[in-house]
Simulated assay, not measured.
Amino acid sequence: MTQARLMDGTAPARRIVGDAAKKAAGLAERTGTAPCLATVLVGADPASVTYVRMKQNRCREAGVESRHVALPAATTTAELVAKLEELSADASVHGILLQHPVGDRVDERAAFEAIAPEKDVDGVTFASFATMSFGLPGFVSCTPGGILRLLDEYGVDPAGKRAVVVGRSAILGKPVGMLLLARDATVTYCHSRTRDLSAAVREADIVVAAVGRPRLIRGQDIKPGAVVIDAGYNPGDVGDVDFDSAVERASLITPVPGGVGPMTIATLLEQTVDAAARQLGA
């Protein structure tokens, strides 16, 4: 069997960021204001620090100002909510990203809900999930949005296909299933309590692995010719799919890293520029 083609996210992400940079430059020329993204990090988790730094670097490429707020690991829910409400009220900030996870001391959902919907460029609030689910104007969750863009990039039409999403988080598993459903896929959600996960995955034309368990999905679980999207990232640059075996059965598969990750950041920057344009009336 022929090995799967890699769904490289780097090139399309670069194009999306380039388009966002042109929009940001035009916005700055018309209004005198550049889009601004505020990133908020609680604690100093090495992976989170790296992710935030990557996003700051991409901001520069897209002509987006980056304002970083670093808070100590001992930050309480009330303190974090107060900071996010302050940023939400700041007219010079157009988008807010709360880097997650935020630690055991903080009620993450309460923190997300402190972000004004018009500045929720990461698509994490109740309001964003609702507008996305009903197909109304708003911001999508960035990783799910990036996944749909990647499917489009490689000519994968979800309509009529059976999609299996492994994972049910509020910012990845659930929203990517809703986006696939909106594209007329038949969607099955699987999770840690799913009986005979392998059997469910073997029925899928499209597999989205988003559960945070290294190499959970094995090649023998993949239907020959399926499209495999690995949205997991684990220590050692390992995804949720056993790449070496899955690549022998899939038709298309994302690498880790270099697949979903770049598309996530590109979607974040694109939505930040769009948020700035709306808030500036441009």
Rank of each mutant, 00 (worst) to 15 (best):
R215V: 10
G63A: 10
V201H: 15
A21T: 00
V49C: 14
G63F: 02
T188N: 10
A20V: 10
A78I: 14
T10G: 15
Y189N: 06
G135T: 07
I217E: 10
A25G: 06
V40R: 09
L181V: 00
S198V: 08
R213A: 15
I253Q: 09
A47P: 12
V17Q: 10
V247S: 08
Q56R: 15
V207A: 12
A226S: 11
I229Q: 08
P255T: 10
S88H: 00
S169R: 06
R218V: 07
T272D: 12
A127P: 10
G259S: 02
F112T: 01
E29C: 01
S128Y: 07
V238W: 02
G160D: 04
G212V: 02
C142D: 00
F112H: 00
G225L: 15
I217H: 11
I171A: 01
R195Q: 15
V124M: 09
D196R: 14
K23M: 04
I115G: 01
L84V: 00
K119E: 04
V40G: 06
A210G: 14
A114V: 04
P224A: 12
V260W: 06
V201W: 04
V260L: 05
T188D: 12
P72D: 04
V166C: 13
G95N: 01
V140E: 07
P144R: 03
T131C: 10
L148F: 14
E65N: 15
H94E: 07
D205W: 03
V64H: 06
G281V: 11
R14I: 08
V228Q: 05
Y154P: 08
H191Q: 12
R14C: 02
E29R: 02
V124E: 10
G160F: 04
M54P: 05
Y233P: 08
R67K: 13
